[in-house]
Design a protein around this nucleic acid. Structure first.
Length: 326
DNA sequence: ATTAGGTTCCGCCATA
DNA sequence: TCTATGGCGGAACCTA
């Protein structure tokens, strides 16, 4: 069973902290048995006073991190407060031995202080990007996505993006169908399109450009199997490709080609998990020009092959069907 | 494994 | 002046 540890210290942000507790800490053995072994670890003194003022206690200390397959650092109240040397050392060890090291929100400051982010791609809450960059030059910071994966180091943007990242980790371990089940229980979409761009400092108001993109995305998703490219999207939207590109960055958070690639991949994953279609037919349905193309994408983006992905995640038809209606 | 020919991305500048 | 669009071209990346 996979062990997940979340680290807290004085001033812990309760929402951030609640995310790994909810995703990994609840007993979800009715979905996958066993679920995760979850440990709440105090980096320093206990009890921990949360930013909201109440006290949290846990029996686990830093030594637990050495046993964790995944170490999660949620946001600290004061990102400028440097983490202890002991915590930094544990995080570096975890990273070096290949454990997944994860930050939520301003937890990125802790990973940065431990020296783990140097030379890596990473993200954090959009309000803190500048501060992080100023204090730790040498991080390849991208303020746009909801989360960033660089090898075994995972960083996520503001608060709720932590849920997206935690669900992504569940998907890596158990496939997208299991992650989708957890997402449904949280009443969360499994995958929010796009990045922070759509949340940054932009009032929630009817926006016709965004609405039009929304329907373009729907149109595109329905036609993945036709092998459409960026040009087809632009034609459909009656936009110059250069303009479409800008609209995508602004409202979706990723360029159009990148969006298509990840939609295709997700569709292929779903078909492999939930159907018995041949690999060739999955590739065709998802809009890949050949099985070789799909294979290359699986290898580049998931580090596996379509066949082995199916072997790992193909849902068992008998037991999965009962339970809550969806 | 290599490669030639696409496609996509994006900085930069001109224009509306 | 400010913002959105159109267009170019090089780099990076994909595809066959």
């Amino acid at each position: 069973m996979s062990t997940v540890a979340a680290v807290i210290d004085q001033g812990a942000l309760t929402f951030d902290l609640a995310i790994p507790c909810e995703v990994f800490g609840l007993d979800r053995s009715d979905i996958v048995d066993p679920w995760y072994e979850f440990r709440l670890v105090a980096a320093g003194e206990t009890p921990v006073r949360t930013q909201t003022g109440f006290l949290l206690d846990t029996e686990f200390g830093l030594e637990e991190l050495a046993r964790a397959d995944t170490v999660i650092v949620p946001g600290w109240a004061d990102p400028d407060q440097p983490p202890s040397d002991a915590l930094c050392a544990e995080l570096r060890d975890a990273c070096a031995r290949g454990a997944r090291v994860v930050s939520l929100c301003t937890g990125a400051f802790v990973l940065a202080a431990a020296g783990i982010l140097a030379g890596r791609r990473a993200t954090t809450h959009w309000m803190y990007v500048d501060r992080l960059a100023a204090r730790f030059p040498g991080i390849d910071l991208d303020p746009r996505p909801l989360y960033v994966v660089d090898e075994n180091v995972y960083t996520s943007a503001g608060t709720a993006a932590g849920i997206d990242l935690c669900l992504h980790l569940v998907a890596l371990d158990h496939g997208t169908e299991v992650a989708a089940t957890v997402a449904r229980r949280l009443v969360m979409p499994l995958h929010r399109d796009g990045g922070q761009a759509q949340y940054v400092d932009r009032p929630i108001a009817p926006d016709s450009a965004a609405d039009q993109l929304e329907s373009l995305l729907r149109w595109g998703r329905e036609r993945l199997g036709d092998g459409i490219g960026v040009a087809a999207l632009a034609r459909r939207a009656s936009l110059h490709p250069r303009t479409l590109h800008r609209h995508f960055l602004r409202y979706v958070g990723v360029p159009p080609g990148e969006w298509l690639a990840s939609e295709r991949l997700r569709l292929a994953q779903r078909l492999l998990e939930q159907t018995d279609r041949s690999i060739a037919s999955v590739a065709q349905r998802a809009g890949y020009a050949s099985t070789a193309t799909m294979r290359a994408q699986f290898s580049a983006r998931l580090g596996t092959s379509p066949a082995s992905y199916r072997r790992t995640f193909r849902a068992r038809p008998a037991s999965a069907a009962r339970g809550v209606a969806q």
